[in-house]
Computed example of a mutant assay.
Amino acid sequence: MKTALVFGSSGLVGGHLVNELIMNSNYSKIKIFVRSKIELINPKIEIIDTNFNDLEKHRNDITGEDCFFCIGTTRKNSPNKNEYERIELNIPRQIAQIAKSNSIKSFFFVSSGYADPKSSGDYLKFKGLVEQEIKNQNFDKIGIMRPSFLLGNRKEKRIGEKFGIILFQLLTPILVGPLRKMRPIRAEIVAKAMVKLANENINQSIFESNEIAELVR
């Protein structure tokens, strides 16, 4: 039986991920790292009140087998450039480093389509830099998920993203060949794919949106 670690359990993918882990018999414990109190009652769950400004304080908590990282923000929610960089870049990199030093075997990360450490835009650049860090840590298994637009019921409204989702849903029939990775994907599919990847021998580490969908077919 394994212990899973979840960062970002209140997000669109993270919420589905926790449910998948609860239902999966391979896990006896699910550590959920949160910055504010949440109501999640299940015998498998251990909620860890986390100071994300001092992750070293939680080094002894970041132990187990499979680490899942689903934290993300937007410019609207984090308009301060330094805070945005801390959430999108510094926190996931530090967690990956601590996880590796604590001999965690697997690390799974919700990135983005077209993530690139050399991108001119901060969002895609930071995602690419985190991917690079995860790969450099040489975990036994990694899963980098690069979804296109995520479908699901978000707690906050993202008007620009909503418009993009509608547009790409309309365009889906013609998104073929190399463009298939631009197809929108449901958040629960991403969560299912991450758990499947953690528990099966799949010889691939980076998954574009269409490849994530194919994992759970």
Rank of each mutant, 00 (worst) to 15 (best):
I48E: 05
D49G: 05
D49Q: 12
T50A: 01
T50S: 02
T50E: 01
T50K: 02
N51D: 15
N53M: 13
D54C: 05
D54S: 07
D54G: 07
L55S: 02
L55G: 00
E56L: 12
E56H: 11
E56R: 07
E56M: 06
R59T: 03
R59F: 01
N60V: 04
T63Q: 13
E65T: 13
D66T: 02
C67T: 14
F68G: 04
F68H: 08
F68A: 05
F68S: 07
F69L: 15
C70L: 13
I71Q: 12
G72C: 08
T73M: 11
T73L: 12
T74D: 07
K76E: 09
K76A: 10
K76G: 06
N77P: 00
S78Y: 10
P79C: 11
N80R: 08
N80T: 04
N82Y: 11
N82S: 09
N82R: 06
E83G: 00
Y84D: 00
Y84M: 03
Y84N: 01
E85G: 00
E85C: 01
E85A: 04
E85Q: 07
E85F: 04
R86E: 07
I87N: 09
I87D: 06
E88V: 10
E88F: 13
E88W: 08
N90T: 15
P92D: 02
P92G: 06
R93E: 14
A96R: 07
A96L: 10
A96K: 08
Q97D: 13
Q97P: 01
I98G: 03
I98A: 09
I98M: 06
A99R: 06
N102A: 11
N102E: 07
S103H: 12
I104S: 01
I104D: 01
I104P: 00
K105E: 11
S106L: 05
S106T: 10
S106H: 12
F107A: 00
F108C: 03
F108I: 08
F108E: 03
F108K: 02
F109I: 07
F109M: 11
F109V: 08
V110I: 10
V110P: 02
S112G: 13
S112Y: 02
S112N: 08
S112W: 05
G113P: 03
Y114Q: 10
Y114H: 04
Y114V: 09
K118A: 11
K118G: 06
S119I: 08
G121S: 14
D122C: 11
Y123T: 03
L124N: 14
L124E: 14
L124C: 11
L124I: 07
F126Q: 04
K127M: 06
K127N: 08
G128W: 04
L129V: 02
E133L: 14
I134P: 00
N136F: 08
N136K: 15
N136E: 15
